[in-house]
Design a protein around this nucleic acid. Structure first.
Length: 111
DNA sequence: TCAGTGACTGACC
DNA sequence: GGGTCAGCCACTG
């Protein structure tokens, strides 16, 4: 558990991820860019890793820029992330979200 | 202190 | 159109 200012960044990431509507997904890069750290997409991924303990953070709605479920192994099982997305109406083929571009959500779309 | 690693991405070849 | 590299930065051994 980080105890420095980086936890601030984590909290910001959590807030953004919480705003992702059901049935939509976002990317690490989009979130990082929105937080003013465009080049720190890996930190968003790391934040997701830490967000695992937060039930109110839908980490399964965050994928990489191609719509691939690169983080599925961190959900307690390799199929959990896919199942969660399918429950929200997504179609997953070969670990990739079908029509990813149409369900893609940017933090700037938030009301 | 240093080197390796990673739920990423964009640029280059 | 795919493979590779370099930035990115927190964490770990």
């Amino acid at each position: 558990m980080p105890h420095n200012t980086s936890s601030d960044f984590f909290l910001r990431v959590y807030e953004v991820v919480r705003q992702i509507p059901e049935g939509r997904v976002s990317t690490y890069g989009a979130i990082a860019e929105y937080l003013g750290a465009r080049r720190s997409a890996r930190m968003v991924g790391w934040a997701m890793n830490a967000a695992h303990t937060r039930p109110d953070v839908p980490a399964h709605r965050v994928v990489n820029r191609t719509g691939m479920l690169t983080g599925k192994h961190h959900f307690g099982g390799p199929r959990v992330m896919q199942q969660l997305l399918e429950q929200e109406g997504h179609q997953i083929v070969d670990d990739q979200i079908v029509d990813f571009e149409t369900v893609f959500w940017k933090p700037t779309d938030a009301v």
